[in-house]
Design a protein around this nucleic acid. Sequence first.
DNA 1: TATTGTTATACTCTATAACTATA
DNA 2: TATAGTTATAGAGTATAACAATA
Lengths: 163, 163
Amino acid sequence: MLNRMNRPAPAADVATNQQDVAETIYRLLVTLFRGLPRDMSLTSIATLSTLERSGPRRITDLAAIQGVAQPSMTTLITNLERAGYVERRSDPDDRRVSLVAVTPAGATYIHTRRRAGAEAIAELVEHLPDEEIATLTAAAPALHHIRELHNQRRDPGPPVKRS
Amino acid sequence: MLNRMNRPAPAADVATNQQDVAETIYRLLVTLFRGLPRDMSLTSIATLSTLERSGPRRITDLAAIQGVAQPSMTTLITNLERAGYVERRSDPDDRRVSLVAVTPAGATYIHTRRRAGAEAIAELVEHLPDEEIATLTAAAPALHHIRELHNQRRDPGPPVKRS
DNA sequence: TATTGTTATACTCTATAACTATA
DNA sequence: TATAGTTATAGAGTATAACAATA
């Protein structure tokens, strides 16, 4: 930051901008976190989103994707099941496995919750000047792409048979 | 998005885009949340950031800004104080009040943590195509502005005497 | 009497360790 | 013997209620 003007290498400059952008996103995340509805943990919401996106998954996979311990995911799924948002199905190929699937009620819940979370943020976006909103709209694909990259990193693959 | 070309009314179109952008940010937030270091709660980090940004504050204010109950903030501050990251000072004007101030160790911690969080995100940004990174850089002021708006909403004002 | 903060207590979330069932 | 999942138990975070000190 301080020595940006002294550096002839443009690559370093780009790296600095990436770091700046990343810090901006990080700080926004930490700040906005508190403004979201808190009727369900973010881990549960992210788990429901994963199930909705990629179909039934086993507990072990869900734990790895969310970065929680396997017993924690068992508890979380048990609670979601009691709420009616997911169901456990048996895997015909391996009777040790529980395949977890989102229910229609779970899908409805996640959509409702997503709308509520988005509205809390939209209320802030509304107050930005038009030019800034335009830059956000232009950056939306990049933000979407970041999320996809994050998901790819954590998700070892689709629920098909693996080696 | 799909029907941008068919709509004569720009106002409705803008509203839709704002909602889309807000949902994108919300979903990114939920996703990235799990990738961050977890050595300290986001509430504690946000509290340290507030103290660093606006100077010593009373417990009641900090609780309101973070949207937690006052006794929860007492506990949180007690833990931060034990870690050496904040200190309680007495308010000369009102002896009921504890003014909480960040220590040098606390400032160092929050900077280190911010860098770690930013790096986790930068690792994803690095993999975006250059054009998308450019849109992110262009949107950084807007993202920063969203955070400021959120802070203004929650923070009733600086630590000066209020009516 | 109202306000600031603390202490007591309970609930949720998540961790590790020990266990059961199946491969 | 290794793997998928569950149960038992503990610690962190946050809530409400009751309390103490000060205004």
